[in-house]
Design a protein around this nucleic acid. Sequence first.
RNA 1: GCCUCCUUAGCUCAAUCGGCAGAGCAACUGACUCUUAAUCAGUAGGUUGUUGGUUCGAUUCCAACAGGAGGCACCA
Length: 500
Amino acid sequence: MSDTPDQNSTPDTAPQRKKPDRFEVARLVKLEQIEALGHDPWGQRFDDHISIKDARDKSPDENGALGEKVRIAGRVMTRRKQGKLRFFNVKDWSGEIQLLFSRGDLAEEQWSLMGALDLGDIVGIDGFMKRTDSGEISIFVETLTVLCKSLAPPPEKFHGAKDIELLLRQRYIDLIYSEGVLERMLKRTEIIATVRSTLRSNGFVEAETPVLHAIAGGAAARPFTTHHNALDINLYLRIALELHLKRLMVGGVERVYEIGRVFRNEGIDATHNPEFTMIEIYQAYGNYESMMDLTEQIFCNCVKSVSDSMVLPWDDKQIDFTAPWPRRKYGDLFKEHAGIEMSDQTGVVELAKSLGLETAGVHHDVLVNGIFEEKVEDSLVGPVFVIDYPASICPLTKRKRDNPDIAERFELFIHGMELANAYTELNDPRLQEDLFLTQLDGMSEEDSMATMDHDFVQALKVGMPPAGGLGIGIDRMIMLMTNSRSIRDVIYFPLLRPEN
RNA sequence: GCCUCCUUAGCUCAAUCGGCAGAGCAACUGACUCUUAAUCAGUAGGUUGUUGGUUCGAUUCCAACAGGAGGCACCA
């Protein structure tokens, strides 16, 4: 390797500097103008500025009046010329404000510097609060500081960028120029902070468990696989947080949760991204009913953190989060919507066939659940807890003491979407071992969670207290609380196929 | 993985029943001291996603490929 590579011998395959387009060329000219005026086009530390929102609050009330001196920083969004007056709109993450440059009042050098600004540049401003003659809250600029030259042109100023692919690939464009995108993502942060504070106030501690798993357990999903070179072993990206958190409960961490990314190698659509954020929460000496209470508390606190009302808009509908939420038995809902008892062996097979489900050699409860998903889930407006699932499809769940065919499990549904899944956790190691070995008829290995994890069984043998466990799909929860139709609206960088 | 649809200037969109590809914004040049998506006048800006095919001629028709959207399947 040479420190002074011969540029003439650069092979064609070497990465090349991208040639500036005509827009970049025009902006580079401005950049040189800024440098020629003795300014740094890339800016420096800019202390003691206030948010644009706070600046706006300092505005004088009377049109034409000059107010107090302020310092702000932000990105140039729009620009209007009116002879020797120039108006700029500048935005930071708190809001937007108009700047007013006056040729007659500004130093000649400053006027030239302003002339080298482009849409998208980031500027620091010292000036006086002012209301213009038409009443617009503005800053009458005294000193302009260039903080960052933008070399790429912004999207169309009125319609903005509309191309979904562009907005997702260049999410920063979406954040800057699409109405409400940044605000929505900041709400996400606020909601997750509220989840944490709610759990903290209930005595839960946060843990970090491995992302790389030797056995991808705790849920039914196809995992991503990877390889560790030094150990020469294949590993899986986790599909759930469950089994490690339960090991922690064995270890005496009595109230524990993790907010973490999990990975499932499945299809992508409005409610599925290959990597998504889950929270799983475990409470020793609780059960699924205590987890329902906790679920309500978490959701309600989160709603309060982003809204004044417990009723949030959802498309042309609404969601009323006011607790308590109904708790409906799986079997009752099944009978209500399917018209038959779920214990009706022949009836279930006939109904499954009429719905086009494969029935040959398929376990009764698998058919029941297939029918439930077809006939019931979409009609669950909620919020509603569906409780008491068929035990055979719940291999990590404690059975009801008086009925081993029913598992103490609930799922939370809102507008047909599954938001949470919770159990009274199975802590009988011998039953757990049996269930890991049980391959339900008609279920693939991936679907059945029947992956033996001897170490987890060993942990249960050491002894896990009776407990409630709860998992919530954080992205979906945020979708509901921000009226977002797609999971990609609440994830900064959803997965896209790479270009080229 | 399967089906249908989409891809035109930096952005938002037109148009071509197969015959020189057009606007607005943005850019550039001027005029304008209270404007606020859009003042006025002018200039420039295109391998119509890529590669083939049909044709005198393809941006338009056909095929393959790439990326995207919706639906199905899978899943939370």
